[in-house]
Nucleic acid binder design. Structure first.
Lengths: 331, 331
DNA sequence: CTTATCTATTTACACGATTAAACGACCTGA
DNA sequence: TCAGGTCGTTTAATCGTGTAAATAGATAAG
């Protein structure tokens, strides 16, 4: 105590006049002790400013009370919102969260998992590339974010329904000629979003052009050219970041949304609502995604036998100023 | 091994036919052993897939190889860039990083520090409110980000010079009547930015109005009104987020930058360069800020006696499309 | 050939907590 | 009264590493 060292369970035991086992029982809420002793121990512990040594506990129990959160990058508007929710929920359960970015490469994902294992995480929430190969046997339980993953628990938005929603809204606004900036189709969520759109649009909309793009706010030349051809009344984008890139191209080309062409995003990341951007989009509940994933992971940690669960969260349409009824002049 | 349990130092020792102490010496690179034994042990360890149990090591040595990174929030464009750099650098040194957001409140900062201590971090990089009171004695070393902090190592950009740079560029563009959206002055960086600006502007620029605002992309009504009065040719903002809020107000009011009024930001966060935003700003080297802070923290962990260090990084002017020479018509 | 000096390795304990098992005190029912 | 059960508490072993101290073996010095 006064000798700098922080007090251990034994110090508490000595002061309280009981054995260290008793202290441990009290502090772990196994109710094995009389109310008086319980109260006494708690009081003494608080007085001494006792706080459990996590390393010792981890060594003995094999549980570290740390979970990992693996995301493709932190420098994107979407993922930090998820990370924040995971962390908040984990903390409520007494877990700390190790947020790590995997740089979007499946190989690095596997390395990151090993790193996390080395640091003794009990499990992780992860947004994984479908090509990711889990170690066998797995180093720790993983909950897959954003997409179903064979053998893993998962939490994700209903991308397919979102795609349909986009198409139906576009049709309702009178759009018949649409260009599409879809994501590369190896990513499950990109695939499902497109699929939903295409299924709902079938026969009612002409998909004039389509370009696969990376999920970043820069477009490849072929996409820029497509936009400049002015052949469509709407550009449907795989996510908000890409939609912003499209808006940028429009601005650079002297066009604007929704006057010359409507632009439709997906995600409803925080900045989509800024007046400068003001993007019509499909909202996925990012925070809920994170907290549900944390919950799921922690239940899994408590019971490794429970059946694998796949949680699908609903999406909603958020109508803003980047889309308009076709043919309607600017207000 | 084959019994599920992962191999320990004793398993390695048994297979290699040496004692566990020898294995420990080898794996910790204390060169106390013959080259042959060294090689043998390493080979066996690799063969068994041995990996050190961090909890046991932490228990024995009191070092966890984890550092914390405390930031006001993750859902801001600026902080994740720093976090990413911290993490990358920490990983290179064999440390994992616990990123935590403190929600911008000094009281919560103190709580977060206790949480981190509970999870056994060896130290932390933190962006602290000046009112933050470190525990005494400190629970672990902290490197202060973004501002000097009494008694702590620190790494931050040269906010004062940045403020001057803003003023000088404004003057060079011919601006004489300027409105200012400054941050609340209890935050050191906001204070210094303003001070630099005011000092350099003295006598050459009229500060027509000034409003203290929170560092978020929404402005209070009084700021909105000030902007709408159209009394100035430039709005100087405490950071990019606030500058974006100003641009939003302009757009909502049927004005635009730089045609009606120039807008000047600070930070050069990632999105400032998007064509939709295209913000003239003062760049602070966010990634370098993070990695230098991590370096500094780790040196501190290795030597608690070294004198406190204050690292100031230079800022630069980034000229984009939100500012223009005064009186110049739109191109 | 003895004794001192190194050096490579091992022995043995500590770190702080958890927990099965042992223990003792008290109660209960025949 | 005594076997058996219950309850609250303690004893003691254990988790995997690190490391001071002991030990053995080789070398050098006298």
């Amino acid at each position: 105590m006064s000798r700098g060292r922080s007090p251990t369970i034994k110090d508490v035991a000595k002061v309280a006049g009981v054995s260290s086992a008793t202290v441990s029982y009290v502090l772990n809420d196994l109710n094995k002790v009389t109310p008086e002793v319980d109260a006494l121990v708690r009081r003494v512990a608080k007085e001494l400013g006792y706080s459990r040594n996590n390393a010792a506990r981890a060594l003995k129990t094999g549980r570290n009370n740390i979970i990992g959160c693996i995301l493709p990058t932190l420098t994107s508007p979407v993922f930090p919102e998820i990370a924040q929710a995971v962390q908040l929920r984990a903390e409520a359960h007494g877990y700390a969260t190790l947020v790590i970015d995997s740089g979007n490469a499946p190989m690095r994902e596997e390395k990151v998992v090993r790193t996390l294992a080395k640091h003794g995480v009990d499990g992780a929430v992860a947004l994984l590339h479908p090509k990711f190969k889990p170690a066998d046997p797995p180093l720790f339980p993983i909950v897959s974010l954003d997409a179903k993953f064979p053998g893993l628990d998962s939490v994700h938005a209903d991308h397919y329904a979102g795609g349909r929603l986009m198409a139906e809204h576009a049709i309702a606004l009178g759009h018949r000629r649409i260009g599409m900036l879809s994501g590369f189709q190896d990513l499950t969520s990109s695939f499902e979003r497109r699929q939903g759109f295409v299924d709902a649009a079938a026969g009612r909309v002409e998909l004039v052009w389509e370009v696969n793009v990376h999920l970043v706010p820069q477009l490849p030349p072929v996409a820029v050219e497509a936009i400049r051809r002015r052949e469509v009344t709407m550009i449907a984008c795989v996510n908000d970041l890409v939609a912003i890139a499209a808006l940028s191209v429009l601005k650079d080309s002297g066009m604007s949304a929704p006057g010359d062409v409507s632009v439709f995003g997906f995600d409803d990341m925080q900045w989509a609502s800024w007046p400068l951007i003001d993007l019509t989009t499909i909202r996925q509940p990012l925070a809920e995604l994170g907290s549900r994933a944390a919950d799921l992971l922690i239940s899994r940690l408590d019971d490794r036998q429970r059946p694998v669960e796949d949680l699908v969260l609903p999406v909603t349409l958020v109508e803003r100023g980047s889309t308009a009824r076709v043919g309607l002049p600017l207000p």
